[in-house]
Every structure is written in structure tokens, then in C-alpha cells.
Computed example of a mutant assay.
Amino acid sequence: MKTRIVFATLLVASSTAAFADGPAFNCAKASSQVEKMICADPTLSAADSVNADLYREVLQASDSQNQVKQQQRQWLRTRNACQTVDCIAKAYDTRYNQLQHERLVNSGAVNSDGSIGH
């Protein structure tokens, strides 16, 4: 429950437009149980949209695009292994934090270890 509250707060802070857009994939073509759960849950749908936008931003700014893609594929395997809404929400929360960290590193706002300064 705590994760869903934190997660919902992140989503509101990230983009209110994401709530109307739904997930980054086409729900009419959802084939896995996880994709169907995401489509059925507005919070997870918004999380997918927010994370997809952040992933594209990080990928574009990265000097190591292959590494970012590999991390995304690994995360998708983790997310797709989930069997509950809470598990999926935790997976999105974790990935959001990872991507946000990479975004800050790419912008020079923080060092790769999370410290600030040179």
C-alpha cells in the first residue's frame, strides 16, 4: 500500500497529462496478463506512460544507448514476471527511480554515485 501511495505521488508530480493518455502500448493488442492488468488499472497505465517518456529521454541523452536498452529489457522481464498489481506498481516505481537517476547523471546534476559536485 505504501508503494502505491509513493508511486501515485510520483505520477502526479510527473505529468497530469499521462493519466488521460493510458499506457505507452496499445491496450487492444495487450496479450500478456501483465499488459492486461496495466490496461485495467489507471495508475499502472499512467505509470507506463510516464516511464516510457522518461526512458525515451534517457535513451536519447545517453552515451551508452545499448546499455540503457539492455537495462530496459531486463526490467521488462522483471515486470512481466509479476502476478499482482502491487508487484507491477513496485516494478514501475523502481524503474522510475533508476531512470530518474540516469536522467540526472546525463544532465550533470549528480555524479553516477549520486553525489553532487566534481
Rank of each mutant, 00 (worst) to 15 (best):
M1S: 12
K2Q: 11
T3C: 11
R4E: 07
R4C: 07
R4A: 10
I5M: 09
A8E: 08
L10K: 00
L11C: 00
S15A: 04
T16H: 02
A17Y: 13
A17P: 01
A17R: 10
A17H: 13
A18P: 00
F19W: 11
F19A: 10
F19E: 02
F19V: 01
A20N: 04
A20D: 03
P23F: 00
P23C: 13
F25D: 01
C27E: 13
C27T: 12
K29V: 02
A30C: 14
A30W: 15
S31K: 15
S31E: 14
S32G: 13
Q33N: 14
V34T: 14
E35N: 15
E35V: 14
K36Y: 04
M37V: 13
M37G: 04
M37I: 15
I38N: 03
A40R: 15
P42G: 13
P42H: 15
L44A: 12
S45F: 02
S45C: 10
S45R: 08
A46L: 04
A46W: 00
S49L: 05
S49V: 03
V50A: 02
N51T: 15
N51V: 15
A52Y: 10
A52I: 07
D53F: 05
D53T: 14
L54N: 04
Y55L: 09
Y55R: 06
Y55A: 02
E57Y: 14
E57F: 13
E57R: 15
L59V: 09
L59W: 07
Q60R: 14
A61Q: 13
A61W: 07
S62D: 08
D63Q: 12
S64I: 07
Q65N: 05
N66L: 10
Q67R: 07
V68A: 07
K69S: 03
K69D: 01
K69W: 02
Q70L: 02
Q71K: 12
Q71Y: 02
Q72N: 09
Q72K: 08
R73L: 09
W75D: 06
W75C: 05
W75G: 06
L76V: 12
R77D: 05
N80T: 09
A81S: 13
C82Q: 08
T84D: 01
V85I: 10
V85D: 03
D86H: 10
C87G: 06
A89Q: 01
K90A: 07
K90V: 04
A91H: 03
Y92R: 05
Y92V: 03
Y92K: 05
R95W: 01
R95H: 05
Y96Q: 02
N97S: 09
L99Q: 06
Q100E: 07
Q100M: 09
H101M: 09
R103M: 06
R103A: 07
L104N: 10
L104W: 09
N106T: 07
N106Y: 08
G108I: 02
N111C: 08
N111Q: 14
S112V: 12
S112D: 07
I116P: 00
I116D: 05
G117Q: 07
H118V: 11
